[in-house]
């Protein structure tokens, strides 16, 4: 079980390495969207600092949504997904490995680039730290829930819009707890609650999402 996890993780990372250009689209989207906001709302530092966390979170959420549709697409197209379904190893473990690889390739870069964006939005170092920490705990949840949507809409027409409709409502709690942390900090309140709730969301989705995605993949291949 552990070895198939490691194999699939290594395989997806290696594939991404061979197709490096594809990996950067989500990151580019994130950078671009966050850079557009100051142009839209004006360059006043105080105002930007106020909306920074919300903008970064919504951009991260949309960047996930944009890229997660491809999570199972190529495996489905070339028949590898069939072999994964037929494996004696639990499909949920394979799915979890794929989601891990996906997060390392799209979620983690967002977290790493976030301090740069925070700088553009005139956030203080502490606020920057909080935003990055919430993104670090929150983006894996986004990837896990996105995987369920990707599995459900696999091979359907209008997949992109459909996955947004399915997954965005599920993202609401993560968005609220994540983006709310900086607001609470700025209001002089305790942010431990936010981190605890984000952690709880991550644990619940870690337990449920791989199983739900596996079930959805079986339904999609039937």
């Amino acid at each position: 079980m552990l070895s198939v996890f490691a194999t699939v993780l290594r395989r997806d990372l290696l594939l991404a390495w061979r197709r490096r250009a594809d990996v950067l689209t989500a990151l580019g989207f994130f950078l671009l969207v966050t850079s557009l906001f100051p142009l839209g709302v004006g360059p006043e530092p105080e105002q930007l600092a106020q909306i920074a966390a919300g903008v970064m979170w919504v951009a991260a959420l949309l960047a996930t949504l944009l890229s997660v549709t491809r999570l199972f697409e190529s495996d489905e197209a070339d028949g590898t997904l069939e072999q994964m379904l037929l494996s004696v190893e639990p499909l949920a473990v394979i799915v979890l490995a794929k989601v891990c690889a996906y997060w390392l390739l799209t979620g983690l870069p967002l977290v790493l680039i976030a301090p740069l964006i925070a700088l553009q939005f005139s956030l203080s170092p502490q606020e920057t730290g909080i935003v990055c920490a919430t993104l670090l705990i929150g983006t894996p949840t986004l990837s896990l829930l996105g995987a369920v949507g990707a599995a459900l809409t696999l091979g359907l027409r209008g997949g992109g819009a459909l996955i947004a409709l399915l997954v965005l409502p599920l993202y609401v709690p993560v968005l609220i707890f994540g983006a709310g942390a900086v607001d609470r900090w700025r209001a002089g309140l305790d942010v431990d609650g936010n981190f605890a709730l984000l952690g709880a969301c991550l644990l619940v989705s870690l337990a449920v999402a791989p199983l739900a995605s596996a079930a959805a993949l079986r339904i999609a291949q039937d």
Binding site: T80, Q83, S87, I94
Partner: peptide, 23 residues
């Protein structure tokens, strides 16, 4: 019908990965 073969891998990598995925 579909080969379950990845374009970006060499034949050896493909063969070993597909065996590993099957367990």
């Amino acid at each position: 019908h579909r080969n379950a073969v990845k374009d970006d891998f060499t034949p050896l990598e493909n063969l070993r990965f597909s065996a590993a995925i099957a367990g």
